[in-house]
Design a protein around this nucleic acid. Structure first.
Lengths: 260, 260
DNA sequence: ATCGGTCAGTGAACAGTGTTAGTTTACCAT
DNA sequence: ATGGTAAACTAACACTGTTCACTGACCGAT
């Protein structure tokens, strides 16, 4: 039985080789600009060989996404130790923004491209999606659920999915704006770190009740941001504030150089 | 001189014919699925003829965008009569969300696709972009500027561009989520109207000072939303609340049937 | 009335794409 | 040694966006 095991292992190895080459090319040139032929050439294979391992180009990219977003989920799941559900939501938002802006091409495919409607989740998929110990979305649902149970949120945020999706939309907007407009000469886009922190603190302030103790934390962040933005020029350019980059961990310990 | 005028008029007419066909096809099948050949076929021209009128496929789509977004700007600019700058921001957000979700393909190209970095705005362009009577972004800058001048916003929202972009990101997130995930079987996306209203009221509440009179209005909206979301199932499906659809004018007086 | 120029529209092609039959080749259990 | 399995290759298909030399209708000027 060891030979068929080895066969499988070898297959996985070339699969990984394909994925590595594809990731590198997609990251540097973008999904559309990279053809199957170029990926094949990079690993000295024939284009047709790729179709032995992946149904088509999209499926190949999707596998890259699955892996990177599993990594994001893993990172978000480490926040489970944070007792305060509101703070948990806050930190998860930070991770989401950072991850999205560091994996622009994968993010694009996952959240900025319509998914094929004909791939239905299996029962198993749904079970995993509902498990807050496995899935990022479920994790957020649990955080929101905890916050609701503790009476921390305003009444209109009592419906969990709507609330998670509102938080999601806000952070997604920050990432998407960065991806598509960060170097747009038509609009003076402000530093990601500032926009991210402004959005997150604003979002949470808008969600929690007026009496919530977390307002103290938001007030603190607001004060730093006020300092920071006051230093910004009213014109067009805008360097990244060092304090904020640190706050958002935008400079990370050289994670495989994965940022475009 | 009338003959060259007529020449010009005829050229504009076929240009419009091309645009009309392209809009129709893009709307029904999406940008990528529509080839230049199909557009040409629809108006019984040769593919090469399109290149007499438009530099390339993207430029064609961009012209569609220009026109539709001029319409959105026009609609937003009618809000200039609203005295309260905070309410002006609120209503502009509503228009943005409605417009984005009603012109999904154009929205995609404008806000979800990287723009070519080599098209630099002329002095004239920049002048128009800074004029709140012509440009939607400038209009928002003025609204925020007014709000700041009146001391309505929290101190961290004193930098105008960062504030506009935060508002922009939040509304953009709502639209983008709708476009890419509204019929995703993996996530029970809530009705656009609810997510939009939740996001807008949350956003403004997070921006204005604790003492601001607009809190009363937000409180009112929050109460309706609390009613509405309380009626939602905790599970997956979610019909549109009639009251909210009206609030967001989601059903409009049959605007050329432009929604995909 | 004829010339010359302008220019919208054409026909045919180019270089590239994603993808797929049909075939070869290397390996393994028998 | 033989037959089966499957990864990888060859060659093609149908399509894409785009270009370029060209026609042919129209125009103002001679």
């Amino acid at each position: 039985m060891s030979s068929i095991d080895r066969r499988q292992r070898e297959k996985n190895e070339t699969q990984d080789k394909i994925l590595a080459a594809a990731r590198d090319l997609f990251l540097n040139h973008g999904f559309d600009a990279v053809s199957m032929r170029k990926i094949a050439e990079a690993i000295e294979y024939t284009p047709a060989a790729l179709y032995v391992h992946f149904k088509d180009k999209v499926e190949l990219m999707r596998e890259l996404c699955r892996r990177d977003f599993a990594a994001m989920d893993a990172e978000i799941l480490t926040l489970a130790t944070i007792a305060d559900p509101v703070r948990r939501m806050h930190e998860a938002g930070r991770i989401f923004i950072r991850f999205g802006t560091q994996h622009k091409n994968q993010y694009r495919l996952m959240f900025m491209t319509p998914h094929p409607r004909d791939i239905l989740p299996t029962e198993e998929d749904l079970a995993e999606m509902r498990d807050p110990d496995q899935n990022g979305y479920a994790f957020m649902c649990k955080a929101v659920g905890d916050a609701v149970a503790q009476g921390r949120l305003r009444p209109e945020f009592g419906e969990i999915h709507a609330t998670v999706q509102t938080l999601w939309a806000a952070t997604h907007g920050v990432v998407a704006l960065e991806i598509t407009h960060s170097d747009d000469p038509w609009v003076p886009i402000r530093a990601l770190a500032i926009r991210g922190e402004l959005t997150l603190s604003m979002t949470l302030r808008g969600m929690i009740r007026a009496t919530d103790p977390y307002h103290a934390e938001l007030e603190r962040i607001g004060a730093s941001l006020a300092d920071e933005t006051a230093r910004q020029p009213q014109g067009s350019s805008c360097p990244i504030g060092s304090m904020l980059s640190k706050a958002m961990n935008l400079i990370r310990p050289a994670n495989k150089g994965d940022s475009k």
